[in-house]
Structure formats: structure tokens, C-alpha cells
Design a protein around this nucleic acid. Structure first.
Lengths: 337, 337
DNA sequence: GTGAAAGCGCTAACAG
DNA sequence: CTGTTAGCGCTTTCAC
């Protein structure tokens, strides 16, 4: 690889002139600038971002840590943040925690050691996990998305998860359902507790006595959700509707239902949180509560950049986003009797 | 951030001792090693990977450029490669080309400027795009996945795309279909031309005269595939089956079919390339040709690492992977008449 | 076994 | 307007 020194020698100028030219400094005469540019082209020179960042004490890298890229929610998040980052001149270092707080901690360290200016994290742990201050260590700025809460001590961007669950469950209630099963997420995650609380709250306010047998905990992944659905199907009396806490688990539930020969929505109404490209193509098209992913991603990224530039002052801020119920075909009115 | 100098001062040793301790060199007495480790812990010191890589002339970064993360094929590819990389001690710098060769070139430059040791690319362009040697510039090693071919001049890892199409179309033929529409990919991509060739070849060998009206070109994305499907539905006589060249377009086709009230497989058989987690949950469960994504990802990554270590000698090698037909429910025998 | 010092490729303050 | 030089944080020869 050609270095700046090589370019300087080739152009017959000093190394400063090369640097200044490349940085667009005005203090270079048109003639030298031309000579430098010619040499750069001839040698195929490309500036070493590592050396540059080392010297400047800054970095054009940002970290992005998600728990599971194969979850369409995170897939879209990655897509959006990558696009924002590219536009803002940042490159993204991707980490996948696989829902494991230890792995996440490792990734955080990795991001810091690579001098990422900041990182966007979808936390995999519980609030206690972060009590050791691992999120605010060093000078790397952090913002949390999705499973965020004020306890984390960093800027957070999340859905109004309680409201999202309420939207889904109210919809089911309006359709006449009374026995509503729920496939919840991991107990320790804030996001999942909020969704469960939303479910419970709506039932309580409707005067329906809580039935612990109706709530099953999955892990936000597909495989385990199948087992959860099977459990719910085995109940007697069987629930007439299921509320599922996220998209991946919805797939698991739909698979289990299909295998058991249970028709949706004739025999069972199903509603979940998270929209995704496939939802409207399903038969029946899936009724879901949509998260404004792009808005959340953009807000998180922009806040991070603002923090980096020192444009955003003050303590951490939590930004909450409104969910939206998308009624399609997977929920039907409870058949009489 | 604490630096090595800080640790040295704190431990009362030279900077060399710190470096040697951290690198696990044997030339440090147990006592000094202990003192260094204590200081590291006390100061919360983390080694600056950037400075280290700069000095060593190596890098623990690898680039990964895909055309579209929201495509489940690439999502899984990213997942697998990320896992492999993490295990091998590499971090991945993610780039999304959005099927744009110019953007891809930009990303390649970015990877090089960040001193990525190598990058794994799913090429977005045609063979001619790469004739300028952009893939072999500099010292960054490159391997291509998915849309690879020998013309690229780098190691390639791809499905036997022709065979994959043959599997799908033969299946349709076996079911009695004769008028088989195809939603193909972008004309300029090698992978898409191969799939189309496989389709055409099977029909030719079956003695079915080619009908250009039956082939529509999409762009491997969802939206345009809907229009393609609508076009196919408007044909008269209407085809009795559709072969779709990838997963995202399959979704588009299924949506269009659902909207038009066309029942699958009763009114229309549908078969595509690419399996994905949702395929078995659809009603009907989707018959597809599966790619061994994990195997391809692993092979590509390992080859890259082998090249980096100088363990793999010789010119570029193309590795071709076998497709597998997964029969589910979306293709049915052609109804008599 | 330990330390001093050079230098990776780059930027920027300081001289001229 | 241009060049010289110090130094970012680290590794590693070379001396002690």
C-alpha cells in the first residue's frame, strides 16, 4: 500500500502538502494540489483511516450491538442505522450478543478497544446487569434501543411497550375474547415485562380475573415459542385467542397451530407485537402492533451523533415511541358458544 | 482513557513490561506480571486495538458487504459470518451496497481505508463491473459469496444456481405443469442469469417451446415482484405455476396472489429458490429450493482466514454448493382440463 | 528479566 | 504558501 510519504515523494512535495490537500485545506496552491492529486491517482493511494483516527483521537467507527439479527425487528434496525451511519460518514462495527449479557459485555469491550466513537446497543440483560456501570465506562458514548429503560443511565429509545400490548389485547377483547393466552418474552428483560404488564392491565380493567396458567414465557425466539403454543393448546378450556410478544415467537406459534390443524382465525385468534414484510402475505394476513423502527433507529443514531459532537447536553433522556395496531385477518370475533 | 503509559507508571514498571504482560510473553517475572495486572484492573485499562494494529501492520477487522440485509439469505449469512469471525478473533465491519455497484465500490474503499485484513463480498455488479480490478486492489484479501464467478478473479463461494432452478422447475414439470411463469432476478447478475438458464434448460429438454412472455424480470426485491406477479396473472392463457428466483420476490408474489384471490396451490403452484424460517409457517407451507447458507458462510470465512495466514496458496478457487429441494405444500398437480 | 527508543501512517502546531 | 517536526498508543529490537 502506498503511504502519504510515497505520494509526497512522487509529487515532489512535503508530506504536509499531501495531508493538507487531502483534508481540503485552503493553504495549498492550485498547482501543488493538482500534482498531489495526480500522484494520489497514479499510486492508487488511499488514506489510512486507522492512523488518522489514532492521531486525531477521534474515530469514524460506531458500534452496533443487537441480540439477534435474524429477528426482522433487528434486521430492519441494522439496515436503518447502517444507512444513517453511512450518510453521516461513519462505518459500523456489528456485534451480535445472541441474548447473552456476558457476550454483550465482551462486545462492548471490543467496541471500546477499536475506539468506536459510540455504540448503539439493544441491551440483552436486565437492569441489574448494568448496575456495574459497564455502559458508561470509558469515553465511548452509548445509546440504548428497544430494551431500554432509565435505569441504564444512558439515552434510551424504545416503544411504549405497555401501550403496544394494550392495543393488541384490547383488540382481542373487543372481538369478544375472554380467555386470552399469552406467549411472553424473557422474564428478565424490561421490554418483556412491560408487554406482559400491558396484557395483565387490560384484562384487569375489563374485570377478567387473571389466570396464571394462561401466560407462558418464551425467549423471543422461534423454537421455544412452538412449545409455548403447544402448551396453550393443551389447556382446557383452551384459550380462544393468543397474544404473542414478538415476531419470531409469532412464527413459532403459527407453525405449531398449523401442525395441530388449528385454523386461524376460525379456531384461534392470534395477535402479536412487531410487523414484518411477510405478515401481510400470510394466509390469513397477520394482525400485529407495529413499531416505528425507522423512527427509533434514526432518533437513536442522531442523538448519538449529537452527543459525540457535544451538541446534546444534560443527562440521559428516554424517548418513547407510539405503537400502531395494524388490523388484518388473524383475529376474528369469538364464535358464540 | 487510561493508556499503557499510565499503567506502567501506576505499576512502577516500564511500558515494555506492560506490553509484554498483556501479550502473554514469557519474559516477565511473576511478580511484575501481578503488579501490571493489578494496575490494569485498577485503572480499567483496555488496549487500543487501533494503535496496536497500526504498529503491527495487521488488523483484526474484516469487512462484510451484502446487497440487502433484509433479505433472509443475507441475514443468515451475516449471522453466520459474524459468529465465525467472533470465534476467530475478528470484528466485522458491515456494509450494505443496496444492490448498487457504485456504493459497493465506495464500501470497498472504506474497508481498505479502515485496514480491514480482508472482506467478504456478495457482489452486486455484473462481471464487467469488476474488470477494473477493484477487487484485487491493495493488500486487502477478498472472497466473493453468492453472486460469485471465476471472472471476478477472487475465491468464490456460490450455490449451483443452474441446478437449483432445475430442481424447482423439474418439480413443477413432474406435477404436470407446462405453462410455467418465471419471476427472474436482475439481468446483469450472474446468479440470476444462471437461475434463468436452469429454468430454460429444463423446459427445452422437456420439449416445451420457450415462451418469452412467461419470463418477467424483477430485481430480487419485494415490491417489484408484486408487479411481476400481476403481469403473469394477466396473461392468457394464464400460467399454472410460477417459479420465483429468490425469497424476497416470493413474498411479493404471494402477496399479489393473495390480493388477486388466487389460491395456492389450487389455482397456482409456486416454487422458489431460498428457504427461510417463515416458509414452513405459511399457509400453504412453501415449497422451495434450499441453499446451504451456513456451509457457504463458513467456507468463505475460513478460506479468507487461510489466505490471510498464508495457508492457502495458488490462484482463486470457485467452490460450488449443492441445492436441495424442500417439498412442502405450495405446488400441486395440475388439475385436468 | 527489564528498560529505552525507534517508528507504524498520519495531523497540526510552529517556523520560515 | 510550504516544510519540519513532535507525537497519537502501541510493539519490538537492541542494550543493559
Amino acid at each position: 500500500m502506498a503511504t502519504m510519504k510515497d505520494v509526497a515523494r512522487d509529487a515532489g512535495v512535503s508530506i504536509y502538502t499531501v495531508s493538507a490537500t487531502l483534508s481540503g485545506s485552503a493553504n495549498v496552491s492550485a498547482e501543488l494540489r493538482a500534482r498531489v492529486n495526480a500522484s494520489v491517482a497514479r499510486l492508487g493511494y488511499e488514506r489510512n483511516a486507522m492512523a488518522r483516527d489514532l492521531k486525531q483521537g477521534t474515530s469514524s467507527l460506531i458500534g452496533l450491538i443487537v441480540s439477534d439479527v435474524t429477528n426482522p425487528f433487528f434486521t430492519e434496525l441494522v439496515e436503518c442505522i447502517q444507512a444513517e451511519a453511512h450518510q453521516a460518514g461513519y462505518s459500523v462495527l456489528l456485534g451480535i450478543s445472541d441474548h447473552d449479557a456476558a457476550r454483550e459485555a465482551e462486545l462492548l469491550t471490543l467496541m471500546r478497544s477499536h475506539q468506536a466513537a459510540g455504540t448503539i446497543l439493544s441491551p440483552a440483560g436486565s437492569e441489574e446487569t448494568y448496575a456495574d456501570g459497564r455502559l458508561t465506562r470509558g469515553r465511548m458514548r452509548l445509546v440504548a434501543v428497544d430494551n431500554a429503560s432509565a435505569e441504564l443511565g444512558v439515552d434510551g429509545f424504545a416503544l411504549d411497550n405497555r401501550k403496544a400490548a394494550e392495543l393488541a389485547v384490547s383488540h382481542l377483547l373487543d372481538l369478544g375474547h375472554r380467555r386470552i393466552g399469552v406467549v411472553a418474552g424473557m422474564r428478565h428483560q424490561h421490554v418483556s415485562r412491560e408487554r406482559l404488564a400491558g396484557y395483565a392491565g387490560v384484562l384487569r380493567r375489563a374485570g377478567i380475573p387473571p389466570d396464571p396458567g394462561l401466560v407462558v414465557h418464551g425467549d423471543f425466539r422461534l423454537a421455544e415459542a412452538r412449545a409455548c403454543a403447544e402448551h396453550l393448546l393443551g389447556l382446557s378450556p383452551r384459550p380462544s385467542a393468543i397474544f404473542v410478544a414478538n415476531n419470531l415467537m409469532l412464527i413459532g406459534v403459527m407453525r405449531a397451530l398449523a401442525e395441530a390443524g388449528v385454523r386461524v382465525p376460525a379456531d384461534m385468534s392470534v395477535c402479536s407485537i412487531d410487523d414484518f414484510p411477510w405478515a401481510p402475505a400470510f394466509q390469513p394476513a397477520l394482525t400485529v402492533v407495529r413499531q416505528p423502527i425507522a423512527a427509533m433507529a434514526t432518533a437513536a443514531f442522531r442523538r448519538l451523533v449529537a452527543r459525540l459532537r457535544g451538541e446534546a447536553e444534560g443527562g440521559p433522556v428516554q424517548e418513547i415511541f407510539a405503537p400502531e395496531l395494524v388490523v388484518r385477518e388473524s383475529c376474528a370475533a369469538l364464535a358464540a358458544g
